[in-house]
Design a protein around this nucleic acid. Structure first.
Lengths: 133, 133
DNA sequence: GTTCCTGCAAAAGCTTTGCAGAAGA
DNA sequence: TCTTCTGCAAAGCTTTTGCAGGAAC
């Protein structure tokens, strides 16, 4: 928990219980939630937490690279507590989103000549093992 | 132009001048536009075209695999006249979106065990050659 | 004591829906 | 002729903004 505070503080941000709560939840639940989902999950423990603050918090955390924003589906924005480059596999059958490791240099080698990669997202849609049957 | 009609017809859809216009424009302008951008571009030639119809059309075309929807940025949905798997490079400097070829089998090999890839999107953010200076 | 953050309400922006009239097959 | 599509207006949703009170430092 102390390291979460440290992360936030080292970005020049103030440590508030709302920021700790959102950041901690996001890191412990790798479910790529929407802002609304984060808010609902925290509401029992933080009855005064507002959806506006969740939006504000995820935007601030993402701007400082502590979390990452995803656009898997068109309708809504999702957030990921793991800011490292990694792939997302979305199962068409059960709707689950699985993380997987990606070989960033290998993907960067596919880029147009002269372009440099700073952030890399890979989204694959298909069927997972269970749904393939 | 005839092949566009053919594409639309072969999906069991009716051929209308609006659908031809949107589909044709999208295929000839690989700029990954928003619905609004498509509408603005076509308005001079189709003064009666409504934004609702553009939305309806891109959704129908995408549902039948003739075009592809993208979620490069969070705010808005974009469309791509090329339905084949390919990567998108978004330049942080000039905002341009460049297509690049991807090696799908190579990426599929990074997937979790047992998962099968049906659609693959790769989004890379960074700096293009011109902006890198 | 300052500055920054939170939370409410309202606004903004994109996208969808309902429905009557028009167009395609 | 029958079914599908278009276009207008209005609604729906997610996300942002403005601002007063409150918390962090």
């Amino acid at each position: 928990m102390k390291d979460l505070e440290q992360d936030i503080r080292s970005c020049g941000l103030r440590v508030t219980k709302q920021r700790i709560a959102v950041y901690d939840w996001l890191r412990r639940h790798p479910v790529h939630p929407t802002a609304d989902r984060i808010w609902s999950a925290l509401l029992p423990d933080y009855p005064d937490l507002s959806l506006t603050t969740v939006y504000n918090t995820v935007n601030v955390l993402a701007a400082h690279g502590l979390i990452r924003t995803l656009n898997i589906r068109s309708e809504e924005q999702r957030f990921d507590g793991n800011p490292a480059d990694h792939g997302h596999f979305s199962c068409r059958g059960c709707g689950a989103v699985l993380d997987f490791d990606i070989d960033v240099p290998r993907i960067a080698s596919m880029l147009p000549q002269g372009c440099t990669a700073e952030k890399c997202d890979v989204f694959v849609t298909g069927l997972c093992t269970a749904c393939a049957e």
